[in-house]
Amino acid sequence: MPRAFDRTRWRAALLAVALMLAAACAADESGRPDTTGRPAETSEGGGATATVEGLERLTGPVDVATDLEVPWDIAFLPDGAALVTERDSARIVRVTPGGEVTEVGTVDAAAPRGEGGLLGLAVHPDYPSEPVIYVYVTASADNRILRMSYTEDSGLGDAEVVLDGIPKAAVHNGGRIAFGPDGLLYASTGDAAEQSTAQDTASLGGKILRMTPDGQAPDDNPFGNLVYSYGHRNVQGLAWDDNQRLFATEFGQDDYDEINVIEPGGNYGWPEVEGIGGDDRFTEPVVVWRPAEASPSGAAIAGGALWVAALRGERLWKVPLLTGDADDPVGEPEALYVERYGRLRSVTTAPGGTELWVGTSNRDGRGSPVSGDDRVLRVPADA
């Protein structure tokens, strides 16, 4: 079972469990889902909405869009529509709350292979006065962050390189980008299957990066470069709570996946430590899972909880957020919709904060797609 814990209480117990349990197979986004598979057909939640005092309220997951090709990230625009990246087609599509899907354009620099392709997307925080979007792509020689103008009327403009030289491989490309409450752009990178890069603060691999919208290192970054935190294997989820704490989800290898609270300059242990290490040189995670129940990708915060999309675990994790103790910031995780929609890749809070949009990843070569996959779902944030 997952554990949210204070570090002292759980350290000894989890280390003992780690010695007793056989390692779960977790190579490359934790491999294929368990052979129990999915239901033959998906459900729309037994009724999408309920009327309370004349207001419509979402009561269960419903499809917003279907027949997408590996949707990787979802980013909302001020008008309530969202831009969605497709990893393998390198398309960006615009999806309205009513379910209208329109192709915005294709990012030609993307060279999809394995876990790489067109990955994260972020909208400039001053949009539409700054009508600019950012994407994280696996290109032919590296992973890179690109910037393009975008409006609904004019479509995508030409791509401009904001940052290049991020290590790439068929696996462990990271790929999530997001603007933080400080107005700066954060990017998660993987170790690109070269574990030693994660501990090298001069390398862009195995890191969380922090930069200006132009790709420059802010003066207060801890190492005088773009590196904000290090010792990461493959982070694919970034989310800030109301107290401006940054939470990140991270794939483990054989033993433990993680949720970490990110501090500037923090060393999160990979490859020396996976899960709870009991080593004061490294920052301990606040939640650990076995890979079979998680393989955590996207993350979002809404309704007093951190929501985490799980690939191999085929579920949406709801992790309550606590505010009283900095060393114990989360409650016991709750698993929702287990094996109901297959592999879940992305989760984003919709405008207003009462619902989430969740993207599946069943056509990524490791899932078992059914009719309508891949899809974007609306999910109530009070589930």
Rank of each mutant, 00 (worst) to 15 (best):
R3F: 12
R7N: 03
W10I: 02
A16K: 07
C25D: 13
A26P: 02
P33Q: 05
D34Y: 05
T35C: 13
T36F: 12
G37N: 14
G37L: 15
S43F: 02
E44R: 03
G47Y: 04
E56W: 06
L58I: 08
V70C: 05
V70P: 01
W72N: 04
D73M: 13
F76Q: 02
A82F: 01
L83R: 03
R87T: 08
D88W: 11
A90T: 06
V93Q: 01
R94A: 15
P97W: 11
P97R: 13
V101Q: 11
E103A: 15
G105A: 07
T106K: 15
V107F: 06
D108E: 08
A110W: 03
A111K: 13
L118D: 10
H124W: 13
Y127I: 01
S129I: 00
S129L: 15
Y134P: 03
S140G: 09
A141P: 06
E152P: 08
S154Y: 09
G155T: 09
D164E: 07
K168N: 13
A169V: 01
A169I: 02
V171P: 00
H172V: 04
H172W: 00
H172Q: 10
A178E: 12
F179R: 04
A187Q: 06
A187P: 04
S188D: 12
G190T: 07
D191A: 08
A198L: 07
G206C: 07
G206F: 02
K207V: 00
L209M: 13
P218S: 12
D219V: 15
N225Q: 05
N225M: 02
H232G: 06
N234P: 01
V235T: 14
L238W: 03
D242Q: 13
N243C: 05
L246D: 08
A248P: 04
A248F: 14
T249V: 10
E250V: 06
E250Q: 13
D254V: 03
Y256E: 11
N260D: 05
W270V: 09
E274W: 10
E274D: 11
I276S: 05
F282V: 12
P285V: 11
V287Y: 01
W289L: 09
E293C: 11
S295D: 02
G304C: 09
G304A: 14
L306I: 09
W307Q: 07
R312Y: 04
L316V: 01
P320F: 14
P329T: 04
E334W: 06
V338T: 14
V347T: 04
T349P: 04
L356P: 06
T360M: 11
N362D: 00
R363M: 10
G367H: 06
P369W: 08
P369T: 07
D374V: 00
R375D: 10
R378C: 09
